[in-house]
């Protein structure tokens, strides 16, 4: 432990902390994007034309099973070079698109599990009451499908937070990039990288506990069957 220096630790701390705003801001932006975009995948599954549904579901599988890091590079470096539709995007926007789209495929599955757990009688009732398709979804199905998935969605917020440092590779200056900068300037990586790890722990651990509590509360409230995907909590905590 002889190489640890508290002086450098204290010097690096405020420096690294400057990136925290960007890290949190990017987390929230990516998360909101994924929440909205996730609905698209949910409805893709309900497209009545088999061929289109099949193609779109394979695209989803493709996005899910390939590394988000490569997707980030694709959007940041390759997208501007695509003839016709390409345009240059800032690192921040690229990260929102890349991580947002990647995680939207997971969020879409969460919505699906919520919708699948809505009782069949509710669909039949809305049909019997002659509800329009729009009304059926907004008044009957979604209000029952989404609340039980809130803990799972919360888990994805924590996952997103832990994935956001990937964006440092395309130049988003969050805490990890600040630590790297500090390391490059002072030739000390140990302390700044440890600070980054500590910051992640401080922020994500209490949130995980909070979400566990929320989950228990929700389970009591909707104590019928929880949505199918929610049983092993750890599933939703998987990172990519």
């Amino acid at each position: 432990m002889s190489n640890w220096s508290w002086d450098i630790f204290l010097e690096a701390f405020p420096y690294v902390l400057e990136g925290l705003g960007i890290t949190i801001g990017l987390t929230i932006a990516c998360y909101l994007f994924a929440l909205v975009f996730g609905f698209i995948w949910t409805f893709v599954r309900r497209i009545p034309i088999k061929l289109i549904r099949w193609v779109l579901l394979w695209i989803m599988e493709f996005i899910r099973s390939t590394p988000p890091l490569v997707q980030l590079f694709f959007i940041y470096y390759a997208w501007p070079m695509v003839p016709g539709i390409g345009m240059t995007l800032s690192p921040f926007t690229s990260a929102v698109l890349g991580l947002g789209i990647h995680y939207s495929t997971y969020i879409g599955e969460v919505y699906r599990s919520g919708i699948d757990s809505v009782d069949k009688g509710q669909w039949e009732a809305s049909r019997a009451l002659n509800f329009s398709t729009g009304k059926k979804w907004t008044k009957i199905i979604l209000p029952q499908a989404i609340p039980p998935t809130i803990p799972m969605l919360g888990n994805y917020l924590i996952i997103m937070f832990k994935e956001v440092p990937l964006a440092s590779t395309i130049g988003v200056v969050g805490i990890l990039q600040m630590a790297n900068n500090f390391g490059a300037e002072n030739w000390r990586y140990l302390e700044p990288l440890t600070i980054v790890a500590i910051l992640f722990l401080i922020l994500s651990y209490p949130s995980a506990i909070l979400i566990n509590k929320l989950e228990r509360k929700m389970n009591r409230r909707f104590d019928k069957k929880a949505p199918t995907g929610s049983k092993p909590i750890s599933k939703a905590e998987a990172t990519g």
Partner: peptide, 20 residues
């Protein structure tokens, strides 16, 4: 589980050798 993989990777690669 509380920190991100990329941070762990950098820490193992850059920081651990210095620390110990």
């Amino acid at each position: 589980r509380g920190t991100s993989l990329i941070v762990q990777l950098f820490w193992l690669y850059y920081a651990l050798p210095i620390l110990f």
